[in-house]
Each structure stands twice: as C-alpha cells, then as structure tokens.
Design a protein around this nucleic acid. Structure first.
Lengths: 173, 173, 173, 173
DNA sequence: AATGAATGAGAGTTCATTCAT
DNA sequence: GATGAATGAACTCTCATTCAT
C-alpha cells in the first residue's frame, strides 16, 4: 500500500500490493469500506502504544506537539497509501455520527491534553477545548492530504513539525 | 454543480446541471480534468475582482485575513460541488510544476501580503514568506476539504474565520 | 437470445447475442431485471395482436386452447432464450404484488375466457375462475420450463397442444 | 436446507446449514452438482418407503393421486430449499440420457400405475402410458416450481391436491 | 477425515470518452 | 456547434473450488 498515486484506491490495487487475491480480501473485509475501520483501529493502537509514558511534560503544549508527531509517524511509516485511505474515509456529518467519532483515541487523546492545558492556564480558553481539538485535527489532516496529493514528494515529518509549531504558538495563552 | 455529494462528480452530472449535453462538454473540454483549469481560472478571477481596493489595511495580517475570507466566499457561493473539484486537482509534485503553480493569484497574492508583512515587521521572519504562504494554503484547503467531506454540513465561513484568526495569531511577530 | 443453455443468463451473453455493448444495454435498461418488464410487455403485445378476432368460437374451451397456442408460439418463435428469461422472473409472493400481476394480458385474458365458459355452463364451477386460471398458467409454465431445461430438444408446440387438450378435458363440465 | 430464498443456494449455505465445513463437503461430493444425485436418491428412497402397502386401491387413479401426494410431502417436509435443488437439475435432453432417467422410482412407479390403469380400462389409452407419465411429471414439477418461485408463500400440499384432482379427471376414461 | 483461508474467473454495474447524425 | 446513443475498460463483489494444515 505504498506506491499509489493520489486517486481512487481500488480493491485490486490493494490486493496486488498486499499480494493477496481479491477473494482473500473479501474473506477478511465484508466490503471495501471495512478496510477503513481496520485502519482507524490500527492508527489508534499505534498511537496508544507509542504515547505511553511519553506525554509527561508539564507543558501540555509540548505534549500536544509530541502527540501530533507520534501520529504523523504512523502515516510516514506506512507510505502515502495509508493517507490515501485515511483521506477517502467519509467523515461523519450528523451530530450522532460525530459522537461516535469522538470515542477514537485520535480525537479523545488530544482533547484530554488540551483540557489539561486550559486548566493549567497554558492554552487559550476563550474558545472551547472541543473547538481547539477540531482545529488541531483539521490542521493535521490538511498537511497529510497535501503531502499525499503531492505523491509524498517531500518530508512529511519535517513539514508537520513546522505546522504544529505554529499551531501551538497560536493557541498558547 | 451545487448539490452533489462529496464523492463522484460525473461528467453526466456536470452536464445535466449545466443543461448541456455530454457531447457539448467534450466539444469545449478535451477531457474531464480540463474542467479544473477553467475552475482555477474562475477562482482567481473572482478573487482578483473581489479584493480590488479591499486590502488597504496598514496591518498586513488583516489583509491576509480579508484575502482568505474572500476566497472562502467563492467556495461557499458555489456549494461544495466546487470544493470537490478543487480537492480532486492533482497538486504538482516536481519543482518545475510548482513554479507554474506560483503564478496563480491564489498563491501569488497571499505571498505578496506576507512579504509586505515581514517587511513591516508584523509577521515572523525566522521562516520564509514562501513557507508561510504554503502553510496558509494548506490550512485553507484543510478546512475546505473537511467541510466538503462532511457534505457541507456546517457553516464554512464561520469555521474558516476561526481558523484564520488563530493562523494569524500564530505568525504575528 | 436464442442459443443459450438453461442456466444463468448473463448481461454479457445478452449483449453479445444482441450485438450491442454492455454500456448500450445499461443505456436502455436501468438494471438487468428491467429486461423482464420489457419482455413481459412484448409477450402481452404479441398475444393481443395475435388473438384479435380469433377467439370467436362458441365453445370457450376452444378459445382457451387457441389462446394457449398463440402464447406458446411467442415462446417458440424466440427460441428457448426467451423462456429462460421468462422462467427467471421472480414471481410475486405477496397479495399486493399478485394484484399487479393480474393486470397482465397473459393473466387477464384467460380469466375472461374461463369466466365466460362458466357462465355458459361449459366449464366446471365448483372451483373459482381465478383458481382455474392459476392452474392454467402453472401448467403453461410447467411445459415451457421442461422444454427449456431440456434445451429445446423437442417440439414445444406439439407437446403443449397435448397438455392443453387434457387440461381442457379436465375442466369441461 | 430449509429456509433459503428461491435464488442462489450456495455451497457455503448448504454447509452452514448442515453444520459441516466447505472442505468436508468437497470431500464427499466431487462438485456442487453431485448433491443432486444424492437428493434424487433421497427422494426415491422416501417415496419407496412411504408408498409401501399404500397403493392398493382398485382405482389406479386413486393410487396415482396417492403417489403424487406422497412425493409432494417429501418436498414440503424439506422446505423449498429442496425444490430449488430439484429444479436446478439439468434434465436429460438426449434419448440415451432419458433412458437412465426412467430407472428412477419417481418415474417408473407412476408409469406402472398408469399402465395398470390402462389395462383395467380406467385411464384413456388413445395416448401411451409413457406420454401420460411425462405429463404427470411435468405437471408435478410445474406446481413445485411455482411454489418455490413464490418463496413457499402458499400451502403446497393443498394446491397440488387440486391440481392432481383435475389431472386425474383429465385422463379418466 | 476435517478444516477454512485462499483463489480467481466472472457476475452486475458505472462512467469517461467517441462519433455519426 | 450540438446531441446523446454507443462503447468498453475497469470497478466492487460473489462463489465454486482447491489445498496446506
């Protein structure tokens, strides 16, 4: 899942790349979209495993930065094929669907960090922690999308590091 | 091109919506992707027309904000069908291709503003104006993509206003 | 649509046989099943055209026989490809769906004949005209299915003539 | 094999229902169609067991009716899954293949009854016993097919009883 | 003997594109 | 210039069949 152009990712491509047959794919995934939940789960798992014991700075903004870098590494490690998948996931547009989304580590974890940051007076609180989290996620995805659409032609980690640096600057109290 | 789901925008849909036949479409556009240059041109034209005489604040960051709001309005006015198209444009990944991209108003205009801002000492200069412009564009697109992927289920202008507000805060000297 | 084995009739087969492309098929039929209504319509039309002025015997059982022979001719003329289609039509199983089915010439016409036959005292009336019609149709289809499943290896008209002869004998008062 | 829709009966379905694995299925049956001979054998066995000592009416038409009812009961008992299988059996279309078919109890038994009926002068003899048997079988299958195609939505035994009643009336001398 | 993961041909369907009218 | 019927490659998904364990 590493070398595809930004465009429609087909089941056949996925299978060729993973060296399995179409039948096998459908043995494990009920339908193409099932890939997504598997991948989202992978990302969450990866994040959980890799932030364990890492986010212990007193400065919550440092922790947020750290969190972002861990997440971006998962994307980098898997080539931009992964980000194609991530970015083809239809996002929830109804309030109920959004509720479920929040359960994901990728969303709940930064929210926790930001809340703590507000409590400690490190992060602006004229705006809710939820809104800030949203902005954080959109910014994260914005960078990933750009990178994927440019066929992974630049260093994602470096670029994201710059973006997150200014993001943190924006919300520091 | 106004009310379609974020997903497949077919030539047939476009033609039906524009009340022309498929044949006519192909008489004017060599292929589907040709639509894009037309649309990009439209956006640039719209921006040029609408910022004329508007960006005269002494604070260049205000001008940048204004520029962003004008651009976002073009997207809003055209429904998310437009953003689908915008976001399906393959971005240049080679240096030469990037050169051409810069010529576009959508890129050259904010770059000018940011440069003036740096000259006036209003914007951070530890990082090049080009890099900041890049971040500005990625942030802009990030919001638009999110909005389109959620099928235009929230108010884009309001949301972008918030994002740009913090973006500006991030790069203010 | 003439030379296929009794087995699944594929869209591709239909198209090859009709010498049109798959795309063309889908230009005219929304989905594969749409073929069916077209074919049912054809049969009805054929029957209507061919019984006009023919069913004027005083003996309604003769008219019923005549009707059956006209219908079977439509099947014969089109080879057993047609009967494959006929027999792959899912039959209505709910009362409401059955209502609609009755509107078809293929069902309404024999019903009329049988009713007249009962009025004239030519046909048994210990059982409703509707039930008799049902038996008539099932018998008709039974013969066609058998013929199709034996790959059209015998003379359908002759065989049906025999069957209808005894059917008529069964319901004669 | 009891509760499936009229349409696709897959090997997987059969195996799940029989609580065996697909592998086991293919250990016993060379291919899916092999199921059929087993089932045909089952039907014959069932008929033989259930008509033993039953067909002793002096009126051979009564015996034919009885035979039909026994056979239809086998179908009813097994739900319409069975009839799907029955009706997907490719019928012999060459004379040699037909020879073999005749050996089956389902064919040979009614033939015997009808022959006796003709000898006793109870059944019409302007037409051969073989032809009458053929009509009997086609009529039997016709009802079963209709029932299966309507997803078993009515009482098969009752309906067949009516059909056989008139069939018998048709061939009575 | 028994399992079920793996296979891949082939099903229905979509859609960018062509071309005779 | 304008039309839309026609094309066919490519898509997602199904399922009879195989085979290592």
């Amino acid at each position: 899942m590493e070398k595809y152009e930004f465009e429609t990712l087909t089941v056949r491509m996925i299978c060729d790349s993973a060296k399995i047959s179409v039948g096998t794919f459908y043995h494990y995934f009920h339908e193409k979209n099932d890939l997504i939940s598997g991948i989202l789960g992978d990302i969450d798992e990866y994040i959980l495993e890799n932030i364990e014991g890492k986010l212990k700075s007193e400065d919550e903004l440092e922790n947020l930065k750290e969190f972002g870098m861990v997440a971006i590494k998962k994307v980098t490690n898997n080539g931009y094929g992964l980000s194609v998948v991530i970015n083809s996931i239809p996002l929830p547009s109804t309030p109920e669907d959004r509720e479920k989304e929040v359960e994901r580590v990728f969303l709940s974890e930064p929210l926790k960090i930001i809340k703590r940051g507000q409590e400690k007076g490190q992060i602006v609180d004229e705006i809710s922690a939820e809104k800030i989290t949203e902005m954080f996620i959109i910014a994260f995805r914005g960078v990933v999308v750009d990178w994927a659409r440019r066929s992974g032609s630049y260093n994602l980690e470096e670029t994201y590091e710059q973006h997150i640096k200014y993001f943190v600057r924006a919300i520091r109290k």
